[in-house]
């Protein structure tokens, strides 16, 4: 009743050096499977045929770790809004469908194998300033820094980013503005983060540029595909803060 016959066209690429291509597989799935479970079934099938299984990243399978990195029919994490691939279920597709699965595409996210890409550029952006400089044990009492509920909530909305990279994958320019701005927005709005706000935005944007991401054309594809539905308002905020910090910071570099 719930079985579906599907044709999968999946990107296979041996390693970073080799050229990849789309391979076609037939698979029998159930509508109750998650997309990743469907790929598990494909892999079981490939192993039974003594072929190399498909490499794809996944871990928590509950919409939070940000490991999954595939583009399904042209959309990062597939057709459902506000969803990661692990939460996408096969009932979103129809019996007889052909599904094209590709890795996230961006020069700054080189393909490692099949659907696995290298997203360490994101770590380096955080390392460049995505933190508050406080050592363990230096903190004052939690309630000595009151933060109004709306500010805390807005900072939280930005902080929900799971670092999956769907924003970069969706962007025709492979821009990392949504990711970077979400962190800037999270920290710069909070009183704890204000002291370093100018230097933070300058450093993070500079690192983002160095990693080779494209520029933002305000296409808003990032917002449309973000599994946590993070708003492009954060990008505007980062633009504002960057322009302000560049013009008003006392430091010359």
């Amino acid at each position: 009743m719930s079985d579906m016959n599907l044709t999968l066209k999946v990107w296979r690429q041996k390693n970073n050096q080799s050229k990849g291509s789309l391979e076609t597989y037939k698979i029998l799935a159930s509508e109750h499977m998650s997309f990743l479970e469907m790929l598990d079934v494909l892999n079981e099938q490939l192993i039974q045929e003594k072929k190399e299984p498909l490499a794809f990243e996944h871990d928590c399978r509950e919409w939070i770790c940000g490991a999954c990195s595939m583009v399904i029919n042209g959309q990062p994490h597939g057709p459902q809004r506000g969803t990661t691939t692990c939460q996408l279920h096969m009932r979103q597709f129809k019996d007889g469908d052909t599904i094209v699965v590709e890795p996230f595409r961006a020069k700054a996210f080189p393909v490692i194998k099949d659907l696995v890409v290298d997203r360490s550029a994101f770590d380096r952006i955080i390392q460049s300033g995505g933190f508050i400089s406080v050592n363990t044990g230096q903190a004052v009492d939690g309630n000595s820094i009151p933060i109004d509920k709306d500010t805390a909530s807005a900072a939280f909305d930005a902080a929900t980013c799971i670092g999956c990279g769907a924003c970069v994958a969706a962007c025709p320019n492979a821009s990392a503005m949504l990711f970077t701005s979400a962190k800037v927005s999270h920290l710069n709005q909070l009183p704890q983060g204000k002291l370093e706000a100018k230097q933070r935005v300058l450093n993070m944007v500079s690192q983002m540029d160095e990693e080779g991401f494209g520029l933002c054309s305000n296409v808003t594809a990032c917002e449309a595909e973000c599994p946590k539905e993070i708003s492009v308002e954060n990008i505007a905020r980062m633009n504002r803060e960057y322009i302000g910090a560049s013009l008003t910071s006392d430091k010359f570099v």
Binding site: K9, L22, V71, N73, G74, Q75, V100, E102, R105, A106, K107, A108, A170, C171, P172, N173, A174, S175, G212, F213, G214, L215, N218, V219, T220, A221, E223, A224, E225, V232
Partner: peptide, 15 residues
């Protein structure tokens, strides 16, 4: 920076 597009083109936008 994009380094090539997707086999299926399907860019969504919100604004």
């Amino acid at each position: 920076a994009k380094g090539g597009g997707y086999a299926v083109n399907n860019t969504k936008a919100t604004n």
